Simulated scan of single mutants.
Amino acid sequence: MMGTVAFAEVQTPVGPFVLAVTEVGLAATGWGARTHPGERLSDLTAVDDPGRTAFAVAELNAYFAGDLRTFETPIDWRLTSGSRRQVLKTLHGIPYGTAVTYGELAERSGSRVPARGIGSIMGSNPIPIVVPCHRVVAGNGLGGFSGGEGVETKRWLLTHEGYLQPTLLDL
């Protein structure tokens, strides 16, 4: 695979969030150090191209400001394949302010991946927030979350979107 990737970092209420954008679109996001998503794109040449990342950065800033509900940033799905890609593409269509259970996502995707396998796919989602793995919950609670500060980040995102009501701790 040849090509280039440009990186940007967005300061968010849930910590620094890094974006990796190829010529095709957003290929990876993640919390923490700027190199985090780049490790998975090591076969691409890193370029300094703020113009390439500007649209995705603007959308994330608008999302965290409460002004954006649907991302239009193009997605580069190259870090996914097979059933994993099928599940993540289905997840990409789950609307803001809603959630599905692991089992519901398995059924909607038509992938034959069991609910437990859906959890593993969510944990390895290369494009969290834009491909909203935080919108997948357990049948009896929030379920897990591997991004940011874990379940507390998931709780914050779901409260931000209005799916969960704020608690006294949020006030």
Score class of each variant (00 low, 15 high):
Met1Asn: 09
Met1Asp: 07
Met2Val: 11
Met2Cys: 12
Met2Gln: 15
Gly3Val: 01
Gly3Glu: 03
Thr4Trp: 09
Phe7Ser: 09
Phe7Lys: 04
Glu9Trp: 01
Glu9Phe: 03
Glu9Leu: 14
Thr12Arg: 13
Thr12Trp: 08
Pro16Ala: 15
Phe17Lys: 02
Phe17His: 01
Val21Ala: 02
Glu23Ser: 12
Val24Gly: 00
Ala27Val: 04
Ala27Gly: 10
Ala28Gly: 11
Thr29Cys: 02
Thr29Pro: 04
Thr29His: 02
Gly32Cys: 09
Thr35Glu: 14
Thr35Gly: 05
Pro37Ile: 09
Gly38Thr: 06
Glu39Thr: 08
Arg40Val: 06
Arg40Ala: 15
Asp43Ile: 09
Ala46Asp: 10
Ala46Thr: 14
Asp49Glu: 11
Asp49Cys: 07
Gly51Glu: 11
Arg52Gly: 10
Arg52Trp: 01
Thr53Asn: 10
Ala54Leu: 07
Ala54Asn: 02
Ala56Met: 06
Glu59Asn: 04
Glu59Ile: 05
Glu59Asp: 10
Leu60Ile: 04
Asn61Glu: 13
Ala62Ser: 09
Tyr63Phe: 14
Phe64Gln: 00
Gly66Glu: 03
Asp67Arg: 13
Thr70Pro: 00
Phe71Gly: 03
Phe71Ile: 00
Glu72Asp: 15
Trp77His: 11
Arg78Ile: 12
Arg78Gly: 03
Arg78Asn: 08
Thr80Ser: 12
Thr80Ala: 12
Ser83Gly: 09
Arg84Thr: 15
Arg85Tyr: 06
Val87Tyr: 06
Leu88Phe: 10
Leu88Ser: 10
Lys89Asp: 09
Thr90Gln: 13
Leu91Ile: 04
His92Val: 03
Gly93Thr: 14
Gly93Pro: 01
Ile94Met: 01
Tyr96Met: 09
Tyr96Arg: 12
Gly97Asn: 01
Thr98Arg: 13
Val100Phe: 08
Val100Gln: 11
Glu104Arg: 05
Glu107Ala: 13
Glu107Phe: 14
Arg108His: 05
Arg108Gly: 07
Ser111Tyr: 02
Arg112Ile: 04
Arg112Tyr: 06
Ala115Glu: 12
Gly117Met: 06
Gly117Glu: 06
Ile118Met: 12
Ile118Gln: 10
Ser120Glu: 13
Met122Ile: 11
Gly123Cys: 03
Gly123Lys: 07
Asn125Phe: 01
Ile127Val: 15
Ile127Asn: 14
Pro128Asp: 11
Ile129Glu: 08
Ile129Asn: 08
Val137Phe: 06
Ala138Phe: 12
Asn140Phe: 11
Gly141Arg: 08
Gly147Asn: 13
Gly147Ser: 13
Leu157Arg: 08
Leu158Gln: 01
His160Val: 00
His160Pro: 00
Gly162Lys: 00
Pro166Val: 01
Leu169Gln: 14
Leu171Arg: 14
